[in-house]
Amino acid sequence: MTLANSRVLAGASPEAKRAGTRLVVRRWLALLVPAGLLLAWFLATDVLRIFSPNQLPSPGQTLRTALDMIASGDLFRHIGASVGHVLLGFSIGAAIALIAGALVGLSRSVEAVVDPTLQALRNIPSLAWVPFLLLWLGIDEAPKITLIAIGAFFPVYLNLVSGIRQADRKLVEVGYVFGFRSFELVRRIVLPSASPYLLAGLRIGFGQAWLFLVAAELIASTRGLGFMLIDGQNSARPDIMLVSILTLALLGKLSNSALRAVEWWALHWADVFQGR
């Protein structure tokens, strides 16, 4: 916990109280836009009837569909499948990125060999992989997991490499003075220096994994939120499509917040500008 924040929580001075109030108000501000959208949605469907129910179902209808799917267990089955895909794909992609990023970050020669190719691969849009993955890996789980792993790989890799490269030479020199060998230098100075970048990379990579998930589950699947989307489209059920999309948004937001909390906890030492 930062000094400033603990003062806010202790809430001694009026100044601190004001700061605390500001914090709470700011939390609620986040709900302003969603609430406005919900109202607009309600007006456009139930009240003004700009959209027909088979174009855009009303909030009430969507909620009923969601509750039905929760009751039948379908929603959680799909969520479970998607979360499984994301976690597995992300873990594989991030693990490979950690190794590749560390090697490239630490060695100019490895960088010269590997990095140009990776930079080229990075520019391939997610959907462009799909036909090949199907061709190579069949239509089972493997192509889906691979696609998600590819999505997670790049942010983690790129951030780790730049994190390592911005490690302060002056701090590394402190390690030299104490006679640290290269492994110790990396573990005790370079990697901690790179950790803000790495954690941001992991968070962005996790977000990417969710984005690639939908592309992955659009491929011949029978479960998952991406499948729900296709299924809703095929059976002309826009309410199911909406439930899928809203669930994706919610899960993405939740995982992002969770990883932000981890970052905040792990990087409390950083002396950075945090916005006003």
């Binding site: 002056k170 701090l171 005790r188 901690p192 030492w269 950083a270 002396d271």
Partner: peptide
């Protein structure tokens, strides 16, 4: 041999 620099060079973490 110990060396002290012009800047403290403490590990911020």
């Amino acid at each position: 041999v110990g060396l002290m620099f012009q800047e403290p060079r403490l590990m911020p973490w």
